[in-house]
């Protein structure tokens, strides 16, 4: 089922041609990077996108939407402009290192894309923990499948439809560090389950 949501309204600056070219002046460049990172975060939050490719193509959304039909982030056909890949990398690095609002899924495999933290990892972790607590499932083994794909599990909307790798990231990057979770490996030696206490 496709849910139809109105298209994201880019801010006005997205139609401003100079935004698409890396500016030589450092002050202006800083502002430019701020504008771009803000656009990415707003865009991803709007479409509930948790992962994009290093070229800025949405990789996973919590919503059941056709990712190919979304308007591109880094280009604007109306003004016939798009960001080149060198500048894209700069923008994404700024998002990751300056704002701490993004992270490579696997720094050794950049092709897997980048997690976009329009919600902080800790807040994701709290939401997940709260759900498990509220549903009386603390101390029960839960599978990654039932936490991500189950259509009957009664998952709250905020954490429904998560990417498996993203769920694992929340568990490993936050809950396990607090000592509140332990993972279980499946036969393929992948993370298949979790016990949250």
């Amino acid at each position: 089922m496709m849910s139809d949501i109105p298209q994201f309204q880019f801010p006005k600056i997205h139609s401003f041609p100079p935004l698409y070219t890396k500016q030589p002046n450092t002050t202006i460049l800083t502002q430019q990077l701020e504008a771009w990172t803000a656009i990415i975060l707003e865009y991803c939050e709007y479409y509930k996108i948790t992962r994009i490719s290093k070229d800025g193509i949405p990789k996973h959304s919590q919503l059941e939407i056709d990712l190919d039909s979304l308007p591109p982030i880094f280009s604007n056909t109306a003004i016939n402009r798009s960001v080149n890949s060198e500048f894209k990398t700069l923008i994404i690095n700024s998002l990751i290192h300056k704002l701490n609002s993004g992270e490579y899924v696997n720094s050794k495999k950049p092709e897997l894309g980048i997690f976009i933290y329009w919600r902080k990892l800790e807040d994701w972790g709290s939401l997940l923990y709260q759900y498990v607590d509220d549903s009386g499932q603390l101390g029960t083994v839960l599978t990654v499948y039932e936490l991500t794909k189950s259509d009957e599990g009664g998952l709250p909307e905020a954490i429904r439809g998560l990417d498996e790798t993203f769920l694992i990231k929340i568990i490993k990057g936050y809950l396990m560090k607090l000592g509140k979770a332990q993972i279980l490996m499946n036969e393929n030696n992948e993370i298949g389950g979790v016990k949250i206490v």
Binding site: E146, M176, L178, K195
Partner: peptide
């Protein structure tokens, strides 16, 4: 290399996990 003590996974946990995995594969 966890510094905090992680919750222990018991044999029962593993058994339940196996069953739930089978359940998931049937659902799939």
């Amino acid at each position: 290399g966890q510094s905090t003590s992680a919750p222990k996974i018991t044999a029962q946990d593993r058994a339940i996990f196996k069953l739930k995995e089978q359940r998931d594969s049937i659902k799939q």
